[in-house]
Amino acid sequence: MKYPTDSGLLASAVVKIGRVVRRIKAAAAASRTRFRDRGRAGARRVRRIASTLRLRGAEARQETQATVFRITGELAALVDRAATETTAVARNARRFLRALHINGRARGRLVRAVNELDTLLVRAARLTAQARVRLGGGKPDSATRLVSLHDPQARPIRKGRIDRPVEFGY
């Protein structure tokens, strides 16, 4: 598991939301529902954070931290915008499932995609909440902190090693 930063988790949430919505739209479930994929914008912001962190020096440290916080706030806003559009996609996909009688694998794939979208929206809301706590100067509770989109039960574990003082798992 890679080290989970708030900005990295937010960017992967934006990308994953776009991927699942594309899968639902490919099944023609919410084909006319408007959705703008913001995955490229999220990746661009993560690259901007990486280039900002390359700055060295004591005087640049404060400026770097302020820039990273600002970009993380932009990523949280991106996730919020993607989530509001995605709720309409999920609603229309559920209507499509109720209205049409599709059977077999196509229905199963669509049901799985809609369920995945629902859980993804809940996790994205948790990510934005914990990012906003961090941006507000607080520290999210490690017992409830979400460190992975795919594995919500993973937690930070202090190991005390020199090379990796914190690991993530069970």
Rank of each mutant, 00 (worst) to 15 (best):
R45F: 01
R40E: 12
Q130W: 02
H150E: 13
G104E: 11
R109D: 09
R48W: 08
L146I: 12
R44D: 09
T128H: 09
D151I: 13
F69N: 11
A66F: 03
A76F: 01
K25W: 11
R61H: 09
I24T: 06
A27W: 03
L127W: 02
I71A: 05
E116R: 14
K25D: 06
T64K: 10
E59G: 12
A131D: 02
R22I: 00
S31F: 06
T144M: 00
F35G: 03
A76S: 15
L97S: 04
A88W: 03
K159N: 04
L146S: 08
K16L: 13
K25Y: 03
P4K: 09
A131K: 06
E85R: 05
V15W: 00
T72W: 07
D151H: 12
N92P: 00
H101E: 13
A113Q: 06
L78W: 04
R112D: 14
V89L: 02
A88D: 11
E74K: 10
K139P: 00
A99R: 13
I162D: 10
R22M: 07
V122W: 00
A124G: 14
A88Q: 06
L97P: 02
T64D: 06
G137A: 09
A76H: 00
A154D: 10
I157D: 11
I162V: 14
V133K: 07
L75H: 02
T33H: 01
F69K: 14
G73E: 04
G169K: 05
L53W: 03
I49V: 14
R22H: 02
R161I: 00
R48V: 09
A11R: 08
M1G: 13
E59T: 08
Q62P: 06
V166T: 15
I71T: 10
R94G: 07
L127E: 01
L53N: 10
G18D: 08
A76K: 01
R34M: 05
I24W: 01
I71P: 01
V15F: 00
T128S: 14
A124D: 05
V79F: 09
A82V: 06
L78A: 04
I17R: 01
R32E: 12
